[in-house]
């Protein structure tokens, strides 16, 4: 019953921007080893939801808790800074790719080792044995991740020179470098062609299986969502309108209504 352990628990999450309620009382949970999708029409509040969970926004209401697997603690995420949340084991990618454009591919991943390494200014200046060892570990670890996402031939290229699909994969590798137990992917397949999407499908599943990372993803590509996720949450206008297995969601009248925009009067 390892699968049943909860790693992320969101209760009644609410986010107001002035008078606008972008998220309205959303409950969501991710269990260990699960791939969960969050879908919904444009402007439904999905990315805002991610931004609340990762500390970019401070939600106006609700409880957000993570339970790192293997540690018998629950960490409340409300009011934590983004970097602390990452340290607790949540990592994310961005909808509009936010790589460090003028750094090399390898360095992009190396940056993300920051919170798992220690060496400081003096270590960098004097390059003592410990610092050199740590630096080598960073390089090796990062290279290993790039091999995993299939970017090892690009290590020394600048991130901005990569093709689009490769940039998305680099974002995933960078997020993995923080050693998360929960990975939040914001539209990882956006702008990818069908072949790249199916590769991504395999990659996400592999990450879950090999690294034991649970995954929560926002995605518009229904084929991808339906094929890899165990459970799906559907948002519309800031509210959760449905949740369930892919099959249940595909048949849910509310979801169909939200997507096709039929207007019934009850």
């Amino acid at each position: 019953m390892r699968e049943m352990l909860q790693v992320l628990d969101i209760q009644q999450l609410t986010m107001d921007f002035g008078g606008l309620r972008a998220i309205d009382g959303v409950d969501l949970e991710v269990r260990q080893g699960e791939i969960v999708a969050l879908i919904g029409p444009n402007g439904a509040g999905k990315t805002t939801f991610f931004n609340c969970v990762t500390g970019v926004y401070e939600p106006t209401g609700g409880r957000m808790t993570v339970r790192p697997p293997g540690k018998n603690v629950a960490v409340r995420l409300n009011r934590l800074k983004p970097n602390i949340i990452t340290e607790h084991g949540l990592a994310r990618t961005f909808q509009n790719i936010r790589l460090f454009q003028n750094m090399t591919v390898l360095e992009n991943v190396m940056v993300a080792r920051h919170c798992r390494t220690r060496s400081g200014i003096l270590g960098a200046i004097f390059k003592n044995a410990g610092n050199r060892r740590e630096e080598q570990e960073i390089v090796d670890f990062s290279y290993g991740l790039l091999e995993k996402v299939g970017l090892q031939m690009h290590v020394n290229d600048l991130a901005r020179e990569l093709p689009y699909g490769a940039q998305r994969r680099l974002e995933i590798a960078r997020a993995l470098a923080t050693e998360p137990f929960l990975l939040l992917l914001d539209e990882p397949a956006a702008g990818m062609n069908p072949r790249e999407t199916s590769e991504l499908d395999a990659l996400i599943t592999r990450i879950r299986d090999d690294e034991g990372v649970s995954i929560l993803l926002i995605e518009h590509d229904m084929k991808l969502v339906m094929s890899i996720s165990q459970r799906i949450y559907v948002m519309d206008y800031g509210r959760l309108i449905a949740q369930g297995t892919p099959k249940e969601i595909a048949e849910n009248p509310n979801v169909i209504k939200a997507y096709l925009g039929e207007t019934f009067d009850a």
Binding site: V56, K81, N83, F94, R98, H114, A175
Partner: peptide, 8 residues
């Protein structure tokens, strides 16, 4: 933003 999200 990305920098902070990477734990810095």
């Amino acid at each position: 933003v990305a920098c902070q999200a990477m734990g810095i």
